[in-house]
């Protein structure tokens, strides 16, 4: 089917989103308890969580870009 590759691309994006949300919920949201045993200021913790979330989103964009390059080479020979 013509759009099979695109369906695969969308599924990969979905899996990446689910992986990131799982990571954010399980490791980043409770980071103050896991790493510091509630010993840090709430604002510092929020800043740290936001910074990690931004790094993860940058990594997501990088991952998507790599995926796009591979897909482009296969589909359009670019």
């Amino acid at each position: 089917m013509r759009v099979t590759g695109l369906l695969g691309f969308i599924t990969a994006m979905w899996v990446m989103i689910l992986a990131i949300t799982a990571f954010l919920i399980n490791f980043i949201a409770p980071i103050d308890f896991i790493l510091f045993r509630n010993g840090l200021d709430r604002f510092v913790i929020s800043l740290m969580q936001a910074s990690i979330a931004i790094v993860i989103i940058v990594m997501l964009v990088w991952g998507l870009n790599k995926m796009k390059e591979i897909y482009m080479q296969k589909k359009l020979q670019l």
Binding site: I17, T21, A22, I25, N26, A29
Partner: peptide
């Protein structure tokens, strides 16, 4: 809401 739970982010 982050699919596997929710995060408290009043400022963010």
């Amino acid at each position: 809401n982050l699919v596997f739970g929710n995060a408290f982010i009043p400022l963010l």
